[in-house]
């Protein structure tokens, strides 16, 4: 098997997020078990993923950071039975879904809980489990 460049290492360890400059405050907050998102001061729209200028209106405004309450509902989900690589095997089956936060933006994230309990529109709350790679997840309420 030919393994190429940047793809060579991820099978042996959980992948770290490739952090962008725009998202530095987001990841700093995750380390403190807080969930941040941005809002445009001009159009009031919730912005995610983070940006340096609001892409949703023509004001060209710099988004402001806000703390999310971390409460939302399941918009869509999928239970992963065949994971992408060996490191995930002991974790499977796990659920990954799109969560619609009450502040009206979406996160793609793991939803903790029994696969059979998952359903569209079920309420979820953010969680910050102690793991090798700190990530916000959600759990069924």
């Amino acid at each position: 098997m030919l393994e190429q460049g940047e793809f060579a290492n991820f099978k042996e360890s959980y992948p770290q997020p490739r952090v962008t400059q725009d998202a530095l405050p987001y990841w700093e907050a995750v380390r403190n078990k807080k969930l941040l998102f941005q809002r445009c001061p001009a159009c009031s729209g919730a912005i995610f993923p983070p940006r340096s200028i609001c892409p949703m209106c023509d004001a060209g405004a710099k988004p402001a950071w806000e703390q999310s309450k971390g409460a939302g509902s399941i918009y869509s989900f999928s239970v992963v039975h065949r994971p992408p690589s060996a490191i995930w095997k002991s974790h499977a089956p796990y659920t990954i879904g799109l969560v619609r936060l009450d502040e009206d933006y979406f996160l793609f994230a793991e939803i903790e809980g029994k696969p059979e309990d998952m359903a569209v529109d079920k309420r979820v709350q953010v969680n910050f489990p102690d793991r090798e790679v700190p990530l916000p997840t959600f759990r069924l309420v």
Partner: peptide, 12 residues
Amino acid sequence: ACPQFEFPYGPT
């Protein structure tokens, strides 16, 4: 997958 907000969760 987005390398920042998706791939770290282990999707295919």
